[in-house]
Amino acid sequence: MSIFSNSHSRESSLGRLAPLKAVLFDVDGTLCDSDPLHYYAFREMLQEIGYNNGVPIDEEFFVRNIAGRHSEDTAKILFPDWDHEKAMKFVDNKEAMFRRLVSKQLKPIEGLHKLCKWVKDRGLKRAAVTNAPRPNAELMISMLGLTDFFDAAVIGSECQRAKPFPDPYLKALEELNVSVEHTFIFEDSASGIKAGVAAGMPVVGLTTRNPERSLTEAGATFLINDYEDPKLWLALEELDRVGRC
């Protein structure tokens, strides 16, 4: 359990954002539990080409080297000796396999639609901010029924630098015309949390698949299991209360 998970002061730190103007969401692992699909696609395709002497990668390898990373970074880590075009072709083929899996099986994080209603009822601006390729992001958002929910979708590869750099989150602020003083973020990876913190915003970390310690060390304000977590609703109630004062 995170050392901050029961810290009321950490949760209450969202209160300083009142009046809240916007909420930013990562996509993979934050809106939906998509990492198992990414893991399956990478494991199958890497084994097919004899990667790691044909021994399938395990989840620890996936979390350490792949989860939350931009496609370019993943290609460099997996295939340091391949030329760029060949490595990116493999990653592109993997993403196509992932989209086929998504079209058949994708589940929202528990409580997602309850949270989205809370955001919408308060008229808050919202953006999806992700390192996923745009076709992946748009498909997942559509499958979750959130196409009309988001005001913007910011893609890491379309920015000067992807996460863990702050550029995608800074671009989201610009597109929504809001400031760091009245915005916070939901993220599930250390890379994404680092990006949000570097952009100057509090980040609520979801313990969907990644180790809690890595999320805390990356700078998460506090951690939640999902969007039904009482810690989250305590913080949101505090935001409402401060906003009414």
Score class of each variant (00 low, 15 high):
V55S: 11
N6I: 03
M45F: 00
G196F: 02
I66F: 01
T207Y: 01
E59P: 00
V154G: 08
A22K: 08
G156F: 02
E60V: 15
P19S: 12
I66T: 06
E187N: 06
G200Q: 04
D148P: 05
S142L: 03
I3K: 10
H182P: 08
P108W: 01
K86E: 12
P230C: 09
D188Y: 07
R126P: 07
G200K: 06
S71F: 01
D26T: 10
V180Q: 11
L101P: 01
A172H: 05
T207K: 14
E72W: 03
A22E: 04
E95C: 00
K231T: 14
A153T: 15
V180I: 15
P108F: 03
I224F: 04
H8L: 15
L176R: 07
V178L: 05
A198H: 04
Y227D: 11
I77C: 07
E59K: 12
G196D: 06
N225P: 02
C116Y: 03
K231L: 09
N210E: 14
A127C: 05
A132W: 00
P168M: 08
G50T: 09
E72Q: 10
K94E: 00
F165Y: 15
W233M: 10
A218N: 11
A152W: 02
C245Y: 08
G50H: 01
M201Q: 06
G54Y: 05
A153N: 10
V63L: 14
A199G: 12
C159N: 12
N52S: 11
E175D: 12
S13T: 00
D226K: 06
D33Y: 03
A198I: 04
A162L: 03
V27Q: 07
K89V: 01
P211C: 12
H84Y: 12
M201L: 14
E181I: 03
C32N: 06
P202M: 07
A41M: 08
C159D: 13
R209N: 15
G243N: 09
T147P: 02
S13P: 00
N136V: 04
H38I: 01
S9K: 02
I193P: 05
S34F: 00
A127D: 08
A153P: 01
A67F: 03
S142I: 03
A190W: 00
I3H: 10
Y40V: 00
N225M: 09
L46S: 08
K21Q: 14
A220G: 09
R241Y: 11
R43P: 04
T221S: 05
D81S: 14
W233K: 08
W118T: 13
